[in-house]
């Protein structure tokens, strides 16, 4: 039984309307997130030499952890190395925009902060950067989620989120957990 040309056309148009509607909804959602909430894809193309990471300024051992710069921007820097994070705990305030910066001197690692949408790979040669706002206080577990070697399953750190009033950086703008 042959279907008439007109019937095919009607069916195709119906489906075109459905597809166009779906794509429009997705596009509007992306535009809304971008313009109103200032959300971006979590990409950051920034290179760093993994061989000399420990000799450079920013990811030198003493500079790791949370610090506030003159403009009030809160940045936590962390190195993921086989088989530990350094420092093993970072202190951050709740309900404030914070920036997390990670680098690796050896192999590919990855992190996620449980209960949040913070999730990134840490690739040697690049700085991984995430901007976020933590809304829940407490000790959040941050495991390595990219197999990095035999010690991978023991590699985790803590993100200690405290209420804004309890977040008191010292005179040099640095804030550290008690534990190393």
């Amino acid at each position: 039984m042959a279907v008439s040309e007109e019937a095919i056309l009607r069916s195709e148009l119906r489906w075109t309307i459905v597809v166009t509607g779906t794509i429009t909804v997705i596009m509007v959602a992306i535009l809304y997130a971008g313009i109103v909430h200032h959300i971006n894809p979590p990409s950051n193309i920034e290179t760093v030499d993994p061989k000399t990471l420990h000799l450079t300024g920013e990811f030198t051992e003493e500079n790791l952890g949370t610090s506030i710069d003159a403009g009030g921007q809160i940045t936590a820097r962390m190195v993921a190395t086989q088989f530990a994070f350094q420092p093993q705990c970072i202190l951050l305030p709740a309900n404030k925009r914070v920036t997390l910066r990670f680098a690796s001197p050896d192999v590919i690692h990855g992190i996620l902060v449980t209960g949040t949408n913070v999730n990134t790979m840490i690739v040697p040669g690049y700085v991984s950067q995430v901007h976020t706002v933590f809304t829940r206080t407490g000790d959040l577990l941050m495991p390595c989620h990219e197999y990095c070697g035999l010690g991978h399953s023991q590699m985790w750190a803590t993100v200690r989120v405290v209420p804004e009033a309890e977040f008191k950086p010292d005179g040099s703008g640095r804030a550290l957990c008690d534990a190393r």
Binding site: H54, T56, E58, D69, Q73, V127, Q129, H131
Partner: peptide, 24 residues
Amino acid sequence: LVPGSPSTRQPTSAAKAEPTTQVA
């Protein structure tokens, strides 16, 4: 083309290197 997000100021670091070892 350059590091950072268009919606957030890029953090800067003035820290000097204090290497635990000079070996690279």
